[in-house]
């Protein structure tokens, strides 16, 4: 099946408009699975161009405390791969926003990887990014994802050697996710230095859009990173708002308002 092209078209449209694509990460199922679609749509109203829908996992080794807690809450509230796909379906019925399934590998292996890819595409997912899937282990999974028409997004890191950056670029479609710093997810006072250098190294290796994430939580970060990257990912900062207002009836308004500020629309 061919790719939905939603991701490619979105980056092209943002480029046309002279601004970076804003990519919002959301742990599905926090505060409860039934609210995920509404929160996602609030993010879109706030200015998110692309949604990364996170599958919660019991042992999120790449995540800092905020997303760890979000995953714990989601799992306690009964989140599962099935329910993440239900949320995707609900979002897709009401929005054309590109969606990426963002996950650790094990829950998807358990679900059955081929079935996962088929069901994800059917639910309206456009691409996948697996935190703990290195390109070295990815040959079969990438093949399965491509056959299902899913874009395959991989991570590039500050530690990646030239050889590895090339591999990452070769395995990726849709865009490349550039990790801004060595470390786990989480908000930072400042965006790590040197990430612009990593972005320009990758430019020489690929014509794919490059999105920078990890540690971006403020409008000024978005502006700074947006000046050289094609996309900016905001994750922990979103999940902190969900954490703070999770019990409130107007959680969605808080999320929308917060994202508007990030998007410079407030």
């Amino acid at each position: 099946m061919p790719s939905s092209e939603r991701i490619a078209r979105c980056f092209a449209a943002c480029k046309e408009a002279g601004r970076p694509a804003l990519i919002a990460y959301l742990t599905a199922g926090d505060p409860e699975p039934g609210r995920t679609a509404e929160i996602a749509l609030a993010l879109e109203r706030g200015g998110a161009d692309i949604l990364e829908l996170g599958v919660p996992f019991s042992d999120p080794i790449a995540d800092g405390p905020v997303i760890q807690r979000a995953s714990d809450r989601a799992l306690k509230a009964g989140a599962s791969v099935e329910r993440v796909l239900d949320a995707a379906r609900e979002i897709r019925a009401r929005s054309e926003m590109p969606m990426i399934l963002f996950s650790y590998l094990n829950p998807l292996l358990r679900y059955g990887f081929e079935k996962l890819c088929a069901d994800a595409r059917e639910a309206g997912i456009d691409g996948c990014l697996f935190t703990d899937l290195s390109v070295e282990e990815a040959a079969d999974t990438v093949e399965t994802m491509r056959q299902a028409g899913l874009d395959t997004v991989f991570l590039a890191a500050p530690t990646s050697t030239e050889r590895r950056l090339k591999l990452v670029a070769d395995y990726s479609t849709g865009f490349v996710y550039v990790v801004s710093r060595t470390g786990v997810t989480g908000e930072q006072a400042q965006v790590a230095g040197g990430v612009d250098g990593l972005v320009s190294s990758l430019r020489k290796l690929t014509s794919l859009p490059l999105a920078v994430g990890f540690g971006i939580s403020k409008r000024e970060h978005v502006e700074a990173v947006g000046s050289y990257a094609d996309g900016v990912v905001i994750g922990s900062a979103v999940m902190r708002v969900v954490e703070q207002h999770g019990a409130a009836a107007d959680l969605e308004q808080h999320v929308e308002q917060f994202f508007k500020e990030l998007a410079g629309r407030a």
């Binding site: 080794i61 790449a62 590998l105 935190t131 703990d132 899937l133 290195s134 390109v135 070295e136 282990e137 991989f154 991570l155 590039a156 890191a157 500050p158 530690t159 990646s160 050697t161 590895r164 990452v168 990790v179 060595t182 470390g183």
Partner: peptide, 13 residues
């Protein structure tokens, strides 16, 4: 195998 985030790949090498 090696099922880790990309940041750890070069250090493992």
């Amino acid at each position: 195998g090696r099922y880790v985030p990309e940041t750890l790949m070069a250090p493992l090498e």
